[in-house]
Design a binder for these strands. Structure first.
Length: 905
RNA sequence: GCGGGGGUUGCCGAGUGGAAAAGGCGCAGGGCUUAAGACCCUGUCCCGAAGGGGUCCGCGGGUUCGAAUCCCGCCCCCCGCACCA
């Protein structure tokens, strides 16, 4: 184990401050990774993303860049508060998960009953782990998102967004527990985790000669043209005043409407049966249709009032059939059907009556088909000819514009039950603050910028494109949780994903905050406008109370470091954080400060199982380091999967790797200090092949392909070394300086230790090995390859000979080499002519012609074999001879240049 | 459903027109060792008493002298679809 070595170099790096980055004359590289959320210990997922970041930071540093690689901690939001409550309540599962999977000792855990303590504890633990794994982070810039200075920065950002008109008020639906009077998150649910909020369209049917409205709820507003009647359940309904209108709805619907930010008032109860047979007016179509009774109507779904489109809704068709009604369905959509679509499908599925469970399936099938392939028929007015998918939105909009339509939110699955046991409802939260991500101009700016960015892997660019188009307005305010208050509306907290969008620029301030040069009260909007955006003026910025000199210095540092050159992140953040990261940068900064590149890596699972912070299993970074140490963990996670695919952590594999790394360590120690003696072909082969590996490693790293990089830098070279030593190589030290450097970004501690056997500088700051075409030695490579092939061929032959005693090797005769040369230059027929002229036996010539395709000229082939007889004998454990007299003629004939005849006795 | 990714030899996983197909893991045999482990070597689709032959990359077609790689159709798997970090 390398624990002592690791600690030693971590201390040395820290003492020498080699990762503290400040502006200088070198080109800069600003690399960030997402700050971790501290509701638990860092785990294998963090380990992966962060280690990729660190390996790249170290690589770029060794390539000569001034690398800034900082990290802070994220604590805003609700989970930390939730966790504190659970610990306070001594929730059994939480205690189990945190002691067992997060490796928190019980007595420590029980004390974490407030958000502050949780933050303090996990921040401390995280820092320990991050230092123990040897990340090259500039820790002078560490912060947490509840720091007063950071909060001032967030407030500034929100003022800027408001000034830009990108924040506005609105309302939106949330899952809500009436008992707790709070929005409910997934983990707060007993039932209904999969339920989503569905938006029904309400279409208002007015009772003939009355002001009573029957609000029919539907997911298919475009079918309004096919309405033949409406359905009521023969049961109790209520009359309610809703935003000034008199609505007939189910009792359940009335209760739900009360949460939908409407003005509702109960007027009285009424029996649905009273209305049966009366007529209502179909909006838009202005047709009178009757109210009919139906048992399938669910009073607890939407309004409890349903419109009937028997041609396109199997339920309606069957209900009419059950009633024995003579009403004719009106077909308004064509999707390749001959008859009435609902009739076709009902007959196909042999549906008996409206209580048949198959009806659900029929409905889905038909809806799907018509939505995707259906076209509106002539009887749908101006919508005729439109695709159903298009008409749906258009009809809905028209109804809404004419106040004939409305929305009703409902869960897709029921029931949805809160942990407290009450049924959840959909609540429409009003006066909510929204980020206007749907803004067309904003979007197109982001889209345009995306095209100029580097996205790794590249197919994620398409994914980003789609997600940008798809992004809608986002509610950015919360009532509950940790966070910064919206500066102009202190009732609301800024939601936690919305406060982590452009914080990378805060790292530049954080250094000054942590050193005490800036206090929170100095961070005024004018100050930030000036140092970050270069807007306003130095005079205004000086109102912050800071000196001109300091302000200018910060301004200059900001200009030096920004923009972010690479943000390396897990793929879980693509559809949220990384998107917001782009949007906010594009909105707030000038073009030259927009992010340059984003890299996205995959997940980590554990022995095939998905990790879960709240349920387990989980492998913490701390535990991994305890078990395997830093370098093994790093090398393993970098090698376990290529950046974009998911990795599976297998303890058996990592143990194997530990052994490999130890071998490397011992190998280097054994050879590093030996002075190289005479350089042989074999040495030139090693240097040549090593050089090729260097090229591969650099190429892989430039694309962040850490798996490929480690594969070459470690395993491939290890294999070269194996062959080299097997062949009796003595001068391994020829490549060791470079090999150590090559591996330094991946396993920095061991490399540092080994490097210091010979040098007094830090390998972490050395120049990364470069590919040198001059060191490629084709001839040496061919010579080794020849020997390898020869050995393999002999073994192949020996398989068929029991108790082999002597191996005779017979290289091709001189005339064959000459003939091959001619054949290569002038073609086979010239070679044949030449052979005849030499008076070579005819059967020999034809044998040559048959085989010449597989032949290759090896310079000094015989000598090559002679020199290596000893090696071959050692490998084969038999005598090897070049004596040609023992070979039968027909055997000799098979000898070709590069492929000698082999004869075993 | 929409969008993105993917299906390769026991497993993981490279490989985008010409290699039974890198590397790792596992397994088997041998060497080293008092022994085990580690380490080193060999083998690991099938056949073969001479370095050879056959079969193979989700399924079915096609293009090509030649396909895991290109085209068409089909099947299957993973991820995201939000206000949650």
């Amino acid at each position: 184990m390398f624990k002592e070595i690791e600690e030693k170099w971590q201390r040395a790096w820290e003492d020498a401050k080699i990762f503290e980055a400040d502006p200088d004359g070198r080109p800069k590289f600003f690399l960030t990774i997402p700050y971790p959320y501290l509701n638990g210990n860092l785990h294998a997922g963090h380990t992966r993303t962060f280690t990729i970041g660190d390996a790249f930071a170290r690589y770029m540093r060794m390539k000569g860049y001034n690398v800034l690689f900082p990290l802070g901690f994220h604590v805003t939001g609700t989970p930390i508060i939730g966790l504190a409550e659970l610990i306070e309540k001594r929730d059994e599962r939480t205690i189990q998960v945190y002691t067992k999977f997060h490796d928190v000792p019980l007595q420590d855990l029980l004390g974490l009953t407030s958000p502050e303590r949780i933050v303090e504890y996990f921040a401390k633990e995280a820092l320990i782990a991050l230092k123990k794994i040897g990340y090259s982070i500039d820790w002078r810039r560490k912060f947490t998102t509840m720091d007063p200075a950071y909060q001032k920065f967030i407030e500034w950002q929100y003022w800027r967004l408001k000034e830009l008109g990108l924040i506005e008020r609105g309302s939106h639906p949330v899952r809500y527990c009436p008992n707790d009077q709070n929005p409910v998150e997934d983990h707060d649910l007993l039932m209904g985790e999969d339920a989503s909020i569905v938006e029904f369209t309400i279409i208002k049917f007015r009772l003939e000669g009355s002001d009573l409205i029957f609000p029919c709820a539907t997911l298919r507003p475009e079918t309004i043209f096919g309405v033949t009647n409406i359905w009521l359940k023969p049961a109790k309904y209520v009359i309610a005043r809703v935003d000034g209108e008199k609505w007939i709805v189910s009792k359940e619907a009335f209760e739900k409407l009360r949460y939908m930010d409407r003005n509702v008032e109960l007027i009285g109860e009424v029996d649905g049966r009273e209305f049966i047979g009366k007529n209502v007016v179909v909006p838009l179509v202005e047709r009178l249709v009757p109210i009919l009774p139906a048992e399938f109507v669910d009073l607890d779904n939407a309004t409890g009032v349903v419109m009937s489109v028997p041609a396109h809704a199997p339920y309606d068709f069957v209900a009419l059939r059950d009633l024995g009604s003579k009403i004719e369905p009106i077909v308004i959509i064509s999707s390749g059907n001959r008859d009435i679509p609902a009739k076709e499908i009902v007959e196909e599925l042999k549906i008996k009556d409206q209580n048949d469970p198959e009806l659900e399936k029929a409905t889905k099938m038909l809806y799907k088909r018509e939505y995707h392939t259906g076209v509106m028929l002539e009887n749908t007015g101006k919508f005729a000819g439109m695709k159903v998918s298009e008409a749906k939105d258009k009809v809905e909009k028209e109804l809404r514009d004419l106040k004939l339509g409305d929305v009703f939110y409902e869960f897709s699955d029921k029931p949805v039950v809160c942990r407290c046991g009450s049924k959840c409802v959909v609540k429409v939260v009003r006066d909510q603050w929204f980020l206007r991500y749907s803004d067309e101009q904003w979007k197109s700016k982001v889209l345009e910028h995306l095209e100029s960015m580097t996205i790794i892997p590249d197919y994620y660019k398409e994914e980003f494109r789609n997600k940008i188009l798809w992004l809608k307005d986002k509610a950015c305010a919360r009532r509950k949780g940790l966070g910064t208050r919206i500066p102009w509306d202190k009732e609301w907290l800024i939601e936690s994903l919305s406060d982590s969008t452009i914080y990378m620029c805060y790292y530049i301030l954080a250094k000054f905050v942590n050193s005490g040069q800036i206090k929170a009260e100095n961070i005024t909007n004018e100050f930030l406008d000036y140092v970050i955006l270069g807007k306003g003026s130095l005079e205004l910025a000086k109102n912050s109370g800071l000196s001109e000199e300091l302000i200018e210095r910060i301004r200059n540092e900001f200009r030096y470091w920004y923009p972010v050159d690479l943000r390396s992140s897990g793929k879980d953040l693509v559809a949220n954080h990384l998107l917001f990261y782009l949007f906010h940068h594009v909105a707030i900064f000038d073009k030259e400060l927009w992010p340059r590149a984003i890299a996205v890596n995959g997940y980590v699972s554990l022995e095939g199982q998905k990790m879960s912070k709240s349920k387990g299993p989980l492998l913490t970074m701390k535990k991994a380091l305890e078990l395997y140490g830093a370098d093994v963990t790093r090398l393993y996670i970098l090698h376990s999967a290529e950046y974009d695919s998911d990795a599976d952590w297998k303890s058996k594999e990592i143990e194997g790797l530990a052994a490999n790394l130890e071998r490397f360590y011992n190998l280097v120690r054994e050879y590093y200090l030996k002075e190289p003696s005479d350089i042989t072909t074999l040495d030139r082969w090693l240097i040549s092949r090593f050089n090729r590996a260097v090229k591969e490693v650099r190429d892989a790293m430039d694309k962040l392909q850490t798996r490929r990089a480690v594969n070459f830098a470690f395993f491939e070279i290890m294999n070269l070394v194996r062959w080299y030593l097997r062949r009796g190589g003595k001068n391994l030290s020829l490549i060791l300086d470079d090999w150590i450097k090559l591996l330094a970004p991946f396993a920095p501690h061991i490399c540092e230790e080994l490097w210091h056997l010979k040098h007094s500088t830090f390998v972490s700051l050395e120049k990364y090995p470069e590919f040198d075409a001059a060191k490629i030695d084709e001839e040496a490579e061919r010579a080794e390859k020849y020997l390898e092939q020869l050995l393999e061929d002999i073994k192949e032959v020996m398989k068929f000979v029991e108790n082999a005693k002597i191996v005779y090797i017979y290289p091709a005769e001189e005339w064959k080499c000459k003939a091959l040369e001619i054949a290569n230059e002038k073609g086979l027929s010239e070679a044949m002519k030449w052979l005849s002229a030499q008076g070579i036996d005819k059967s020999e010539i034809s044998s040559f012609a048959k085989r010449f395709k597989n032949a290759e000229l090896i310079p000094n082939e015989r000598k090559r074999i002679e020199e290596n007889i000893e090696f071959l004998e050692k490998e084969l454990q038999v005598k090897v001879s070049l004596d040609s007299s023992a070979l039968p003629i027909e055997k000799k004939r098979t000898a070709m240049p590069g492929k000698p005849a082999i004869f075993v006795t």
